[in-house]
Write a protein that binds this DNA or RNA. Sequence first.
DNA 1: AACAACTGTTGACGACACCAATTATTGCGC
DNA 2: GCGCAATAATTGGTGTCGTCAACAGTTGTT
Lengths: 141, 141
Amino acid sequence: MRTLHADTGYLLYRLGLRSGQLFNTFLQESGLRLRHYAVLRYLATCEGALQRELSARLGYDPSAIVGLVDDLEKLGFAERRPAPDDRRSRIVVLTEDGRAFLRDTDQAGRRVTDELLTPLAPAERETLHTLLARVAGNGLA
Amino acid sequence: MRTLHADTGYLLYRLGLRSGQLFNTFLQESGLRLRHYAVLRYLATCEGALQRELSARLGYDPSAIVGLVDDLEKLGFAERRPAPDDRRSRIVVLTEDGRAFLRDTDQAGRRVTDELLTPLAPAERETLHTLLARVAGNGLA
DNA sequence: AACAACTGTTGACGACACCAATTATTGCGC
DNA sequence: GCGCAATAATTGGTGTCGTCAACAGTTGTT
């Protein structure tokens, strides 16, 4: 009987859990969790996003986005602005504090991935990243 | 600002979630979940295991193992036997039904990983698996 | 004007990780 | 042998999370 470790899908599942845990412990002191961090990082790339866009791109349920943006607003890292053309929507934008937080934690964030990929040489990490990106495909990530 | 997809750790986290979801939908009709399947597959390799061993090797909390083995016993896929040398421990063994279940679902299980790795050529899948196994390291997986 | 579709929001439910405490048993020091 | 720390399985509680249903406000269509 072949062992479970022989299954690439299960390896991905296991390492995904470990990676998420590492990220969360890294974010623990800031009061945020990985989900908040993902939203912040996404907002930093697009200069304002609708909540439904956050939901679609990050893969979280729309109802989850509500709470995440609430938390980020409470911390002063993001804020909701009314959408000019559609009064149903609200545009979430990064505040200066939020941008500063990303700058301050960027280095520590890289260390998390470094720690996870310790067993691999730089070239191997590059290969792994390329393959994972291919698997992630066009969709979110 | 670099995008979130540029982070290998986050990619792993995301793909881990997707892989787990794929496995769970594949197992949905059988009433099991990925955690149960992991226990079954492990039991198939060792011909009987203590619950603390399952906890350590699969990375689940000991309290979680209790419920998982309960479910597997209820389905007739595994059973607890008293350990001869230590009356505290109980040895969990696969039943014939459990072994048959693994045989019947083996092919479908492979399809799950195949579906996940669709974008990759066979040689690339091999490379990915090797790298992931290296990252997983000596410990569990 | 009537109606379907969409956005954000709230609420509920189950699954799950994590930790503390308990019971039964074992092994160790004395 | 006796006392005591350590261990295996179990129970329970807490917080997080994914998923779905329902809702109000708004938009677009016809």
